[in-house]
C-alpha cells in the first residue's frame, strides 16, 4: 500500500519507467549463486573472485584506484567516436542512398571492406599510429560508422514506392521529397544503425585500450589480469557492462521522447 502511494507521488517523468522486478530478481539470484559457488565448489580456484571480493575491489578501484579516470576516458572516447562515426556514416549513407551512381560505384567496395573482421584493423591502426589515443579513436570511428552508413543507405533505398509516388504527384521538390518523405521513411533503419553503432563504439574502445592505447577501462582490465588481480578484473568487467547498458538506455530513452509520433515504427 505504501509502495503504491510512493509510486503515485513520484514525479511525472519518472512514472514512465517501471521497475522490472522479475528481471532484477534474476540478477540478484545470479549474484547469490556466484557468491555461493566461489565459496564452495570454486573455493580452491584463486583465479575466480567471489561477488564480495569483486565489490570490494570495485570500491577500492573507485575511491583509491584509477577507475574513475579510466571510466571517464572510455566514456569520452566512445562518445566522441560514436558521434563522429554517426555523422560520417549518415553523410555517406545519405549520398549512397540518394544518388544512384554513387550506390553503383561504392557498394561493391563497401561489401568487401565491411566483411573484413573489424579486429584485424587494430594491427593496421597500430602500425600507422602507434600506441596512442589516435589509434583508439580511429578504430572506434572506422568500425562503428558501418551500421549507420548501411542503415541510412538501405533505409533510403527501401522507401516505399507508394510514398515516392505521392511525393511526385504532389509535385514536391527534390529537397522536400528528401526531407518530408525519404528521410522520415528511413528513420527507423537509421536509428537501428545509431544503436548498433553505439554498442560497437564501446566495445571497440575497450578492445583498442586492451591492445593499442594504454588508458581507460580496457587497459585497466588487462593490467589487473597481468597483475593477477582477478577481483579487480571482474570489477572492470562489471563497470564495462554497466557503461554499455547505461549509454544504450539513455539513447533509447532520448529516441523514444524525440520520435514519439512514430508510434509502432520505432
Amino acid at each position: 500500500m505504501s509502495a503504491n502511494r510512493a509510486l503515485v507521488a513520484r514525479p511525472r517523468w519518472l512514472q514512465r519507467y517501471r521497475v522490472n522486478w522479475p528481471g532484477l530478481a534474476v540478477i540478484a539470484a545470479g549474484i547469490a549463486l556466484w557468491e555461493l559457488y566461489s565459496r564452495t565448489l570454486g573455493a580452491h580456484f584463486d583465479s575466480i573472485a567471489s561477488a564480495t571480493q569483486t565489490f570490494q575491489a570495485l570500491k577500492w578501484l573507485l575511491f583509491e584506484g584509477p577507475l574513475l579516470a579510466q571510466l571517464l576516458h572510455t566514456l569520452i572516447v566512445s562518445l566522441i567516436g560514436w558521434l563522429v562515426a554517426s555523422t560520417l556514416g549518415f553523410a555517406m549513407g545519405l549520398a549512397i542512398g540518394i544518388w544512384r551512381p554513387v550506390w553503383m560505384y561504392t557498394m561493391a567496395s563497401i561489401e568487401v571492406l565491411r566483411s573484413i573482421p573489424s579486429i584485424s584493423f587494430v594491427s593496421i591502426a597500430l602500425l600507422i599510429f602507434g600506441f596512442s589515443l589516435q589509434t583508439e579513436l580511429v578504430i572506434v570511428i572506422y568500425v562503428s560508422q558501418w551500421p549507420v552508413l548501411l542503415g541510412t543507405a538501405g533505409g533510403i533505398r527501401s522507401t516505399p514506392g507508394g510514398l515516392l509516388e505521392v511525393a511526385r504527384s504532389f509535385r514536391l521538390s527534390r529537397s522536400a521529397t528528401i526531407f518530408k518523405v525519404i528521410l522520415p521513411a528511413a528513420l527507423p533503419n537509421i536509428i537501428v544503425g545509431f544503436r548498433l553503432s553505439l554498442t560497437l563504439s564501446i566495445s571497440l574502445a575497450v578492445v583498442a585500450e586492451m591492445v593499442g592505447n594504454p588508458a581507460g577501462l580496457g587497459f585497466g582490465i588487462v593490467f589487473s589480469q597481468q597483475a593477477v588481480q582477478p577481483a579487480q578484473a571482474f570489477a572492470y568487467l562489471l563497470v564495462i557492462g554497466l557503461l554499455g547498458w547505461g549509454m544504450n538506455f539513455i539513447l533509447v530513452t532520448v529516441i523514444g521522447r524525440v520520435f514519439r509520433g512514430y508510434g509502432p515504427l520505432v
Binding site: 516505399p160 505521392v166 528513420l187 512514430y262 508510434g263
Partner: peptide, 13 residues
C-alpha cells in the same frame, strides 16, 4: 491523385 492503395499512400509518421 487519390490512390487505390490508401495504406501505402499516407505518411505514417
Amino acid at each position: 491523385f487519390v490512390f487505390q492503395n490508401y495504406a501505402a499512400s499516407l505518411l505514417p509518421w
